[in-house]
Nucleic acid binder design. Structure first.
Length: 426
RNA sequence: GGAGGGGUGGCGGAGCCUGGUUGAACGCACCGGUCUUGAAAACCGGCAGGGGCCCUCGCGGUCCCUCGUGGGUUCGAAUCCCACCCCCUCCGCCA
């Protein structure tokens, strides 16, 4: 059986419902084709299984005959024919199944009902905001200018050591990065109840497929090792969500809330103009991730709570932000609902994404085969969620820009002073 | 990286040499029942996952697949052969 992301039984029973939901993403799902292939597949399976039953019976008879010391040459010959027929039918079934997989694996998660309509990011809906855009009585500078002047961000030497879009952090810049990581983790473990993990930074292709980073139309953004079936971690979602792959979790352990700091790597070849400056879009970046494994009934409220946990970081840092609900057309492939947190960035004169919090329902769990037994009964897929809490580099940029002074120094947010061991970067 | 051993159901652990009532003994855990004032013990029973078909649609019937993964041999594979993955022990290397 192939790895299916959507429930194939649901596709069978409620194709219209799913087609409508996927249409909200601007997708015309080929569900008629699916239905036809599915019908054919079941036909072939039924025939193959009939023949297998016959063969099994024949084998038993041959065994019994041998016990009795009787010869069964013609029975064996007949069974041999059956086996050949079965082999052909199994091949046919596998072929049809591959075609079905081609369709099903490319179907994204249908949006939840409370996801706003819309085609792209312009249709995303602001659900709340905190603080207001920072105003300056001087001309504010972008973080790459400030950072270079303070000699805490060195992009030229980062590029020398690796290549463009790798950055060398120095002195207070390096300390700020470390301070943020510790602050995030302390907050989520100490006050929000998450368990801290530190997973491998290299992940195999099974893991990548499990969370949906690898597929026909995705995967070229990842750094792949040449001599091994391993990739550089593109987001902690991958190594963290995969820890329970192929497991049946104990119901009493749910929900499981974990957080992890992990460097992340993405090729992002040829990305757009403005983001090429500074820390906003790097090939290597640090991120603290929040991941939840929950009972299906609770995933909606778990998403709200997770989003608030991520927002709390920005509030403590006193960085202005807004929370938007992604519209159906802007949702990622595996997400059924997503809130983006956008922090105010003076150099952009706009809000910029700093966290993305999603509910995947059972979409990932189905691929990952993570289940639990409700009431000790039959296994059922759990729901998974994740969100950044937060992207570290972008937080650094936001702090440098929002807390800058006219003389080029940068105030350290109150919540971070203990971690920085300083009140100001100058 | 080299040598050897091993991957079986929620867990432990038989079976593999000598292919055929072993989809899997036995034990533990778990669920139900008897017993008991209650509990424990004892005893009786149940207890893997996925899929197809049928239906008086239910905690139903039936069939198929799955003993690390993928191939192969065979009428028939947990059992034989090949490749790969993983784990353990020893050696090497190293933080």
């Amino acid at each position: 059986m192939g790895e299916l992301m959507l429930d194939i039984k649901k596709l069978r029973k409620q194709p219209e419902e799913i087609k409508l939901a996927l249409a909200r993403r601007g997708l015309d799902a080929p569900l008629d084709e699916f239905a036809e292939l599915d019908r054919k597949l079941r036909e072939v399976i039924a025939e193959a299984e009939e023949n297998k039953a016959l063969r099994n019976k024949a084998s038993d008879e041959i065994a019994a005959a041998r016990q009795a010391g009787r010869d069964s040459e013609e029975k064996i010959a007949a069974a041999r024919k059956l086996s050949e027929k079965i082999k052909a039918l199994d091949l046919l079934a596998a072929d049809i199944e591959a075609q079905l997989d081609d369709i099903v694996l490319e179907l994204p998660n249908p949006p939840l009902d409370d996801v706003p309509d819309g085609a792209d990011e312009h249709d995303n809906v602001e659900v709340r905001s905190w603080g207001s855009p920072t105003r300056f009585d001087f001309e504010p500078r972008p973080h790459w200018d400030i950072g270079t002047a303070l000699d805490i961000i060195d992009q030229e030497r980062g590029a020398k050591v690796a290549e463009s879009r790798f950055t060398l952090l120095k002195g207070a810049g390096a300390r700020l990065e470390r301070a943020l990581i510790n602050f995030f983790l302390d907050l989520h473990t100490g006050e929000h109840g998450y368990t801290e993990l530190f997973p491998p930074i290299l992940v195999n292709s099974d893991s990548m497929r499990g969370t949906g980073q690898l597929s026909k139309f995705a995967g070229q953004e990842m750094y792949k090792l040449r001599d091994d079936d391993l990739y550089l971690n593109p987001t902690a979602e991958v190594p963290v969500t995969n820890i329970y792959r192929d497991e049946i979790l104990d119901e009493k352990d749910l929900p499981i809330h974990v957080t992890a700091y992990l460097p992340s790597f993405r090729r992002e070849a040829g990305a757009a103009g403005r983001d090429t400056r500074g820390l906003i879009r790097q090939h290597q970046f640090n991120k603290v991730e929040l991941v939840k494994f929950v009972r299906p009934e609770t995933s909606a409220e778990e998403l709200e709570a997770l989003t608030l946990n991520a927002e709390e970081v920005l509030k403590r840092l006193e960085l202005p932000f807004r929370t938007v609900s992604l519209c159906a057309g802007d949702l990622g492939f595996a997400a059924a609902k997503t809130y983006d947190l956008e922090v105010w960035l003076p150099s952009y004169d706009d809000y910029k994404e700093i966290s993305s919090c999603s509910n995947f329902l059972d979409f990932q769990a189905r691929r990952l085969n993570i289940r639990y037994r409700p009431g000790g009964g039959k296994p059922r897929f759990i729901h998974t969620l994740n969100g950044s809490g937060l992207a570290v580099g972008r937080t650094s940029a936001a702090i440098i820009e929002n807390y800058q002074n006219e003389d080029g120094s940068v105030n350290v947010p109150e919540a971070l002073r203990h971690y920085m061991g300083a009140e100001m970067i100058e």
